[in-house]
Amino acid sequence: MISVQHITKRYGTFTAVNDVSFTVDKGEVFALLGPNGSGKTTTMKTIVGLNVPTEGKVLINGIDIRTNPKEAKEFISYLPQRIVFPENLTAREVIRFYGSMRRLSKELADKALATAHFNGFSDKTVSEFSGGMIQRLGLAVVSMPDAPILLLDEPTANLDPQGVKQFREFVLGMKAKGKTIIFSTHLLAEVEQLADRVGIFVGGKLAALESIENLKTTFFQSGSIEDLYLHYVGSCENENR
């Protein structure tokens, strides 16, 4: 469903992502795990077509995101790391606008708002919303188009514990619907609970690509996922030295 092929992204002399390749199959939940600045967001933004790779390409259902972006993006729904909506628009106006970008009806947009428990708040402006409500509105925008692929960039970074719980329920619900999900995080518990496979990013490189099942059977017997993560981060840092 998603094929990332030898992606490299350089900013001048700095290499943010270095020859990263992986595939994500239909219905799979894939986590990009790594410390801050390890290349997760750059990779995520390249998959969505927001970043132009220096080398390599991304295929969404066999469609190159660079050469046919509109067609490829029909399959994708993306939640940025920090979501912002115009403060003087109401929740209804926001969701209807994003619905109109995908040629969806107003009724469907209103339904997505109701599903996200926005009843009573639909006609209030974004300036009146808490951070959690804005994130919920973001998730409503992302889930509205029923796109087969969801890309979520550090979705729990700004959430309180209740928001994190709601996000987990959201991902599990989407997984049950057969969606393909890629999310980036530096929280190991999220990976363990939600992901089928994990790609560990260190210093712009994909240090490891493992299924959670494999990790559990081969590594967890002798340690936790935290030990595994530190093992990869440590060995990559040693290599770089």
């Binding site: 969505v48 927001l50 509109k70 067609e71 993006k73 029909e74 940025p80 979501i83 925008v141």
Partner: peptide
Amino acid sequence: ELLFSQPV
């Protein structure tokens, strides 16, 4: 980012 990620 959200706007440019739409199929436009």
